[in-house]
Amino acid sequence: MDPLADMGGSPGWGPAKVPTPDEPPFSEPWEGRSFAMTILTMGRISGRNLDAFRYALERLDPVSYLADGYYGRWLNAAELMLQDSNILAPGAVDARARTLAGDDVEEPAFPEPQKPDYAPTGPGSLREIDGPPAFAAGDAVRTTNTPRPQGPSKLPGYVRGRRGTVTAVRPGHLLPDTHAVFQGENPQYVYTVGFPSTELWGDDAEPFTLHVDLFESYLAKISEKEADR
């Protein structure tokens, strides 16, 4: 099953919010502190592994993902990553919050940290790749249609198994499928792929083109015959 975070095309969310000019970046002070803490602790755990952070977001239960908005889910994902690395014990945050509120609670002891034995080979998420890209702009491709893997993936569910055309070749990226779980950078070219809306949503769809950035291993070339069918 696709995680809740993979939202593209999912029903039931109601109308879009009308933008308000000059909205501040943080609506309450705790949002700014959660933002800063998450960014700054990510480096402590994993060498700023953005993919691991996004995978932590994906693993949150629906309440933890939605109830306290964007920075609420950042806070919860930071807590999850700190628990994964045994930097904090489960329940430590809630116990400390109750202590700070004046309750008499027993806080769990700090565990022995077990950080992943993993370091990025360079800064950022982009890498030079020696070989040429497998696809070029204009190529007809189909996305893989295997069931979603158990671990991380950046192939949105709504484009799985669909036919599209390569719009542009992008630089090599760390592969989130393995990098997010500290199992290797495995850099791949990324391609922007354009899909006609009817390929995604059927003949009655609003006419438009949807472009999405996809990793090389998510794509296979198809014949013009198959592309036209």
């Binding site: 502190r33 959660s34 945050v93 809630d94 400390r96 919050a97």
Partner: peptide, 14 residues
């Protein structure tokens, strides 16, 4: 606890 309280708690732990 509310997110503001959990944020303060996490900061205090870190």
């Amino acid at each position: 606890p509310e997110p503001a309280q959990r944020t303060e708690a996490l900061e205090s732990l870190l």
